[in-house]
Each structure stands twice: as C-alpha cells, then as structure tokens.
Amino acid sequence: MIVKLHSKEEALNFLEKTDFYDLLFLANSGRKKYKGNKIELCAIVNAKSGACPEDCSFCCQSLKWKTHAPVYPLMDRYEILKKALEAKNYKVKRFSIVISGIKPSKQEMKKIAEAIESLRKNGINSCASLGLLNYDEISYLKDYGLQRLHCNIETSEEFFPKICTTHKFSDKVKTLEAAKKAGVSICSGGVFGMGESWKDIVSMAYFLKEFNVDSVPINFLTPIKGTPLENQPVLSPLEALKIIAMFRLILPEKDIRVCGGRPLLGEFSSWIFISGANALMTGDYLTTQGRSYIDDLKFIENHNLEIDYVVP
C-alpha cells in the first residue's frame, strides 16, 4: 500500500492519527516500491575544520562556542584522495568533501577543484559541502567533475532563525537554486531534535519535495558541550524512526539518507530500513566518530539487503 500525502495539513493529520507501526509498514512499502532492496553508502572527509564565523547553534565548529573541535586548514588533494579511495574499497558510492566556514576562498576553490578532478579520474562519485556558493562557483567545480552539491536547509524556514542568525534560510535557498541552474545533483536535509515541532519538520519536508532534491540527509542532534544546544534532550529512538518514515512518505522516490546521530537509535538501529531509509552515511562524521565501513557492510548484509554500488 502506497500513501500519497498532498499537503502539509494532510501530512500532519495523517501522522497524528496513524499508529506508529502502521506508519513504518507504509514507509517500508514505499522504500521497497521505489528503491527495492538496495542501500546506497556515502562517506565524507572533514577537509577543513573549525574556526567558522557562523553561529549555527548545533555545530561545534563555530568560533563563537567554546568546544574542543579540531581546527586545521584545507587538506591537500592527495590526502583527500587517499580517504576517498579507502571508502571506495568498501563500496561507498559517493564521497563528499566538507569544509567549515561561509565558503572557500579563491585559493581554496582551486585546491578543491583539483581534488574533485582527482576523484573523477579515480572513478569516484564526487560531492561537496562548501557553504553558500553561487552559480559561477558551482559551475567551476562541475567543470572539474563535481556531480552533487550538499547544502542542508537544516530545518523549516520558520524555525531557522532560532538556530542561526549569521545567515538566512533564503541564503541556503539561493545556493540550492544555483546548484539546480548549474545542473548538478542536490543533497539537502537537516538536523532533527533541536527543539523544532512536527509542523516544522513537515514544512521542511514539503520544501524539499517542491524543490525536487535528489537526496535527503537526516541527522539527529548529538548535543555537544559548549554549544547552545548542549542541554537539549535527545530524540527518542521511536521519534527518530518516525521522522525517517515521514520523509519517505512525503518524498517517496528520493534517497532518504540516515547520517549523523545514528548511535542514539541504539537497539532500534536495525529499524531504519523498515522506517524507509535506503541510504546511509558510513565512516566517521565531521567531528564525531561514526561506524566503520566493515561494520556497516555487515549491518546491511545481515538485513538481507544489497549494496547499491556500480563503479562509474
């Protein structure tokens, strides 16, 4: 059975009235219909860390918060390539270069472009998360082989000012519009458990649906000491699973990708697929430890699922 939710109001009403296990059943049916039994893996490298002038309340890399986040300049392309090749050996389909800050400098852009070119020459699907880029900058990287741009909207437009004041939701949208114009694939999602309401979550999902993004990364907040959200209660595993299921139902044909914060699921980790997820970030996160490539490959195999991996 496939459910179609045509409006935010319909989705909120459906979520309120639908039993949790029925919701998961419907989400899993959608995953199987549109994605089969294949799970896609992606991985990232924190290619430039810390010293960020932005004030995103969930992020430990901001200069404004007193945390122990590592601080270092942009890695060279050989170090980035080394990490990408390691990921490729474990059937990771996409590899993303992530940096802190508003956007790269011109010198950094050239180095990132060279790193993307190295990934392309080694048969690696490239992605990048580089802040608030414009059309010319994205087109420049595309010429070197960039296939996908990642830029999270983080939350709903209404809730956004409560988690960031140094840039606006509309600035994120401009970057997504530039990526669409440049003709690269788009990955955009956000962080859940920051104090947002279900109305905010549904509003965010419909924005991504209307924008027709290709991949939706779902991150669950891991409160970090020193940030404004250090005392924010973490989501329960069932709340987290419900979020995954809701995104599958609203964006049935898209990649629903579980990324940061997976450990909070605990014994319910094995439920992410029946909740509708068809993609995972594997390996380490930006500043926290994730799951090893080997563990995630076994995790998927133990669920009798296949790795969505074809050498480009």
Rank of each mutant, 00 (worst) to 15 (best):
K209I: 01
V191Q: 00
E239L: 13
I186F: 05
K209T: 07
T166N: 11
I163Y: 04
P228S: 09
A178V: 00
K162C: 15
E230D: 12
E230A: 12
D171P: 00
Q232A: 14
V173T: 01
E210D: 15
L241T: 05
V191M: 10
Q232G: 08
V173Q: 00
V191A: 08
T227N: 03
N219A: 14
K225S: 10
N231C: 03
P237C: 10
D200A: 15
E177M: 14
N212W: 00
M204R: 02
L238H: 12
F159L: 15
E230M: 15
G226E: 04
F160S: 01
A182R: 02
K180D: 03
F169D: 03
T175R: 03
E230N: 13
V213E: 02
E177A: 14
E196S: 09
N231F: 14
M194H: 08
P161H: 07
P217N: 06
N212S: 14
S170C: 05
I244C: 13
F169S: 01
N212L: 13
A178R: 01
I243H: 09
M194A: 12
G195Y: 12
N219I: 05
L235T: 13
L235A: 11
M194S: 12
F159H: 08
K242D: 07
K174E: 07
F192H: 09
L176P: 00
V202K: 04
G195H: 10
G189K: 00
F192N: 11
E177Y: 09
F192V: 08
Y206T: 07
I244E: 00
D200W: 08
E230Q: 11
G195E: 12
S188P: 07
D200T: 09
F220G: 03
E177V: 06
L238Y: 15
K209G: 00
K172N: 15
N219Q: 08
G189F: 09
I186E: 01
K199Y: 11
C187D: 04
P237H: 13
S197M: 14
